[in-house]
């Protein structure tokens, strides 16, 4: 179908996300093979979850917890009616994250995104979105590079 390259440079967000300790636990537990809302131990650590995510009384997020908030501007981009993408035909092609500051409970994280490339190859459309997520101190937490592939 071909997505118009004029949308390169489109910006999305800012979106904000407040990080909760229970959400960090749920995410780590779902990834580690558990059921998100069940099975936490007396110390708060899910079965199978790394003690390293519980440094004493302090909790840090799995680095890939950023999936939860960094996806927002990417989601806005691929659902932007101007691009006309059929979501059922969309698959996630590639993903890159650079991690800077750890994710901690109570953080307020603001994410923005920009379409940096649109191209067509082998009867598929490709859209690249770069996202940046910063915490309440203005420090960069994660930069993401998302590649959506849309089957035609």
């Amino acid at each position: 179908m071909g997505i118009d390259k004029k949308h390169i440079g489109n910006k999305y967000g800012p979106t904000t996300y407040v990080v909760g300790a229970e959400k960090l636990r749920e995410f780590a537990y779902a990834v580690a093979g558990g059921v998100p809302s069940m099975g936490f131990t007396g110390t708060g650590a899910p079965e199978g979850l790394l003690p390293q995510l519980h440094q004493g009384t302090e909790i840090v997020g799995m680095p890939s917890f950023c999936n939860v908030f960094a996806i927002a501007p990417f989601g806005q981009a691929v659902t932007d009616p101007k691009l006309g993408i059929n979501l059922l035909m969309l698959v996630h092609g590639e993903q890159e994250y650079e991690f800077f500051e750890p994710i901690r409970p109570g953080d307020t994280i603001t994410s923005t995104g920009e379409i940096t490339d649109i191209f067509e190859k082998q009867a598929k459309d490709f859209v690249t979105v770069v996202t940046e997520s910063k915490n309440q101190h203005g420090k960069l937490v994660v930069r993401g590079r998302w590649l959506a592939v849309i089957r035609q």
């Binding site: 790394l50 799995m62 092609g93 590639e94 993903q95 890159e96 991690f99």
Partner: peptide
């Protein structure tokens, strides 16, 4: 140590 992870890159 979760805080030492600097980057991940994958193709699905």
């Amino acid at each position: 140590d979760a805080t030492r992870i600097a980057k991940v890159k994958v193709r699905f």
